[in-house]
């Protein structure tokens, strides 16, 4: 894969993005003009200009269509928190949040995410203050080598939101009340985190860490 990266480096992309990040409408309009080809003839182009909002910063990029969100993050923006484990959506190490929902960034073509808001592990802390899930992973020692940890934590952020939004899982009882948050039992956490593999086998501590935070947020049981 040989992406065409127009900005000279990640810093350049950041500067261009920062200048635009306060003007939502401007960014959208810019996207429409510079965005992917409309006509069938222009569809023969192999790269497109697009905007990705990553951790609150808008990045204007021109990318080969083959570029995945994971490759943009790691190779173009210098955000190496999301990891390339299997590169086939089977391990979860690349998990990020796209418009607030967790997804495998290795299976997402960047051009198709034009205009979307992406949050990576680098975007979870507030300054020096870690995200509660980051705190809990440290507190519970929920890792060994750490390679899967950014994906585990981003996935857990997604899990908490999905449970709060009432998304059922495979283990949610069929007669569970609908319309409110789903209580995150240990069984629920195990099922919902099944898309994130840990070759070190830190699962028991990972489940504890997620349970700690869900308890604090009132969605545990």
């Amino acid at each position: 894969m040989q992406p065409t990266n127009q900005p000279a480096d990640a810093g350049g992309a950041r500067a261009a993005g920062a200048a635009r990040s306060g003007t939502g409408a401007g960014t959208r309009a810019g996207t429409a003009t510079a965005g992917p080809a409309r006509s069938a003839e222009a569809a023969a182009e192999q790269s497109s200009a697009l905007v990705l909002h990553v951790n609150g910063t808008a990045y204007e990029l021109t990318l080969d269509h083959r570029t995945t969100v994971l490759d943009v993050l790691r190779e173009h923006l210098g955000l190496t928190g999301a990891k390339k484990g299997c590169d086939h959506g089977q391990c979860g190490a690349c998990t990020v949040l796209v418009d607030g929902r967790r997804a495998n960034s290795c299976l997402m073509l960047a051009v198709a995410q034009d205009g979307r808001h992406i949050t990576t592990i680098e975007g979870l802390a507030h300054g020096e203050r870690l995200h509660p899930l980051q705190e809990a992973f440290v507190e519970r020692d929920a890792l060994q080598c750490g390679y899967c940890t950014p994906g585990q934590i981003c996935s857990a952020v997604g899990v908490l939101q999905e449970a709060a939004d009432g998304f059922p899982s495979h283990v949610t009882p069929a007669d569970a009340p609908q319309g409110g948050p789903v209580p995150l039992t240990v069984e629920e956490i195990r099922e919902r985190m099944s898309g994130n593999l840990c070759r070190c086998g830190a699962y028991p501590r990972i489940v504890e860490a997620v349970h700690d935070v869900s308890t604090d947020q009132g969605v545990a049981s």
Binding site: R101, R102, L107, G158, G195
Partner: peptide, 28 residues
């Protein structure tokens, strides 16, 4: 899988979808 009418009237469909793939994949 989360849609109220699906869970209420077509439970088999919600259950089938939730038994497949992972949370990340189902979101996408």
């Amino acid at each position: 899988a989360a849609a109220a009418p699906v869970r209420e009237r077509y439970a088999v469909l919600s259950q089938a979808v939730l038994s497949g793939a992972s949370g990340q994949l189902r979101n996408t």
